[in-house]
Design a protein around this nucleic acid. Sequence first.
RNA 1: GCCGGAGUGGAGAAAUUGGCAAACUCAAUGGAUUCAAAAUCCAUCGCUCGUAUGAGCUUGCGGGUUCGAGUCCCGCCUCCGGCACCA
Length: 806
Amino acid sequence: MTYDHKSIEAKWQDRWETEKVFQVTEDASKPKFYNVAMYPYPSGELHVGHIRNYTYIDLITRYKMMQGFNVLGPMGWDSFGLPAENRAIETGMHPQPSVEGQIAKMKMHFRKLGAGFDWSRELASHSPEFYRWDQWLFLEMYKRGLAYKAEARVNWCPKDQTVLANEQVVEGLCERCDTPVEHKELSQWFFKITDYADRLLDSIDTLDNWPDRVRTMQRNWIGRSEGATFSIGVDGGGTFDVFTTRPDTSFGMTFCVLAPEHPLVESLIGGSATEAEAREYIEATGRASEIERMAEGGKTGVFTGAYAINPVNETRIPIYIADYVLMGYGTGAIMAVPGQDQRDWEFATKYGIDIIRTVQPPDDWDGEAYTGDGVTFNSDFLDGMMRDEAVSTVISWMEDKRIGTGTVQLRLRDWLISRQRYWGSPIPIVNCDHCGMVPVPEDQLPVLLPHVEDYAPKGRSPLAAVDEFVNTTCPECDGPARRETDTMDTFVDSSWYFFRYTDAHNDEAIFDPEKAKYWMPLDQYIGGVEHAVLHLLYARFITMVLYDMGLSPVEEPFERMFTQGMLVRDGAKMSKSKGNVVPPDDYYENYGADALRLFELFVGPPTDDAVWNDSGVPGTKRFLDRLWKLGTAAHEFQDRDENGSDREILGLVHRTVKKVTDDINRFHFNTTVPALMTLANELQAYLADGAREETFGEVFDLMLLMLSPMSPHIAHELWEMRGHEDLLALQSWPVWDEELAREETVTLIVQVNGKVRDRLEVSAELTAEEVEAVALASEKVLGWLEGKEVRKVIARPPNLVNLVVG
RNA sequence: GCCGGAGUGGAGAAAUUGGCAAACUCAAUGGAUUCAAAAUCCAUCGCUCGUAUGAGCUUGCGGGUUCGAGUCCCGCCUCCGGCACCA
């Protein structure tokens, strides 16, 4: 017997919508719970891997509601940006109608899943009501010196024809299209995230409810390292600065290396014997992409012909140019200490440069450069010191001599936010010949994105070709002026949208701080680990900025972060390009959202990748069919007093409530499903053995309450059919009764020397002496004791006794 | 290289604190039902020996701690993810 999932699911989706079950407002009388899944790019097509995510978020919304929380679970659309624009280019349909059509499809998907979102707060980043506040935020950052325009060597994707932030370059490739990234000198807008590097780094320690890997990835990305920056003189005049984390090894410096792009290079090679060779090298490395530079087997470089003076011992050492030194990190120049640095070792070996060890390696050391700690030698006043002491001693020495100082280096760069693309929020700046760069006044926001038919990327913003947009008047002097034509990175939108949900329709302000104070921080945030350093770092940064502006009540936006695993099929992550995507449509049609949701929960630990099994949903549907039959068939009940079998099934259901509650709290959703399956199996057996109607009803109702956040439609229908008038979603989550949950008898494990030799049903009340006595009375056990002496008895009543014999 | 995570049956997995390894589901096999099939129901299902009661082995590998280790400690191997000529 199967149930009619289609009509039941449509019925309850209507009810939840018309009764506004998931619409909430601030309510000081209830504890709040703010529950968000990262807002999706509206691709229009969800696959079962996405559904997993939304099943989790919906389960939490429904569970927390039943626990008495005022739960906000909003949904919106990350509708600006490259994916939407590229899709528009492919299909020839303008991004606006295209995106809006996709949004309508996605909403249909969410409805079919039965997801409980508060649609009254829906937002979309491409709508002027939203991006107006992007622009406002930009201007506030500009006022505070946190947004600036600068000429810089930037990442350029030749396919997407736009610049990219460092975070959007993955192993030298464009994050979106895997095209090798090039470099260009361009004048671009940046957000000064480096000003917040220390705060962003330090407060990672407070994010106790975040996955370790995400915290580690952010720490690595910020890449703070402590050391010294000091100046090295060139023999014949001039100086350059170097950064090192190992100033204690300065006496081992036998050469210096400058990056090929280093500004001093030109004057060093001019007129030198190796000038031609050096110029050729610089040109060759300039042409090579970063990947090619790294892929080279050994280190390459060229002698400049110039010498430097090692400031700690006045030794004259050669200066090389080599591309293993990067202009983008530190000072673009290094002191090379081959004895203590493997890269320098390789370079020195190749070019025949001296190697001097200054740190004593362990006796059994047979490696090349020794980078560990040890006693310093060959180092004059540092001799005999261990690393930490030597570092601080040499830094003081440098500070006394005024040639250097202790410094901190970051790997993190400022966030490049301008894009030479159409489908984004215009940067609200006007360039005036007379007044220079002028921010658009707040009352003139939003700077509307004009409707443009030719939005194909051309290496400069398509907006630059729209005269009506570009030409404007200066807000200061009313003279002719030109607008900025770059648009903002969509990661700007996503770094504050979760504030907007708290006050989604405010047209006076980005949001009301009072509303944010009620809802923030997010109690639960769920999304893919691919955003570990992109969105999640930017969102933390912008939240800190909003905090400093007095708008956010918190410095950290996401109290508890959860990154779900991916669904894998045919050995690969589901993706359109691999052709292994499983759409949910057939499941809705043939098995129902409830069965699909249940399998999504059942498929494996939420944090882990899981393998999609096509027979899984039919399996969970079978379970729901059995449940339906159990709840709707006419049963023969016994008219009798409560007895042992009633207490057993009641005990089991209370233990199940405890387990399911604990499991949901720990995000072990995959074990909640088997708990309910076991309960249903036992309930069926109880029924077959002759059930009391009251007991059966009590157990069944508790089961429906637990099923409600997982497979809500069937649970609601059965709940109603059992004569309950109030909506199941609004019931309280069940609380287990410790007394009922207690087991009366347990299986006592009897071990002899740690091996299980007998299992006995005993009362749960037995003491240590009693279980020992029971164990020693067991015939099976006696056989193992024959001829041996019991030396020790380990009793763990009532579950286990271990007899140690010998 | 550094950092993080993982390794358990044919598959997904389970085992909150060190205490019955493999719950639950899928697949497979056998059976019932059926004219037949689907659906449903029942049974078997880690490996070895044995007709069997049963015995031995088994959580990537090697050691250790412990009465007792999938779980803790030490040393390795493999896989996944992140960062990376970062000085």
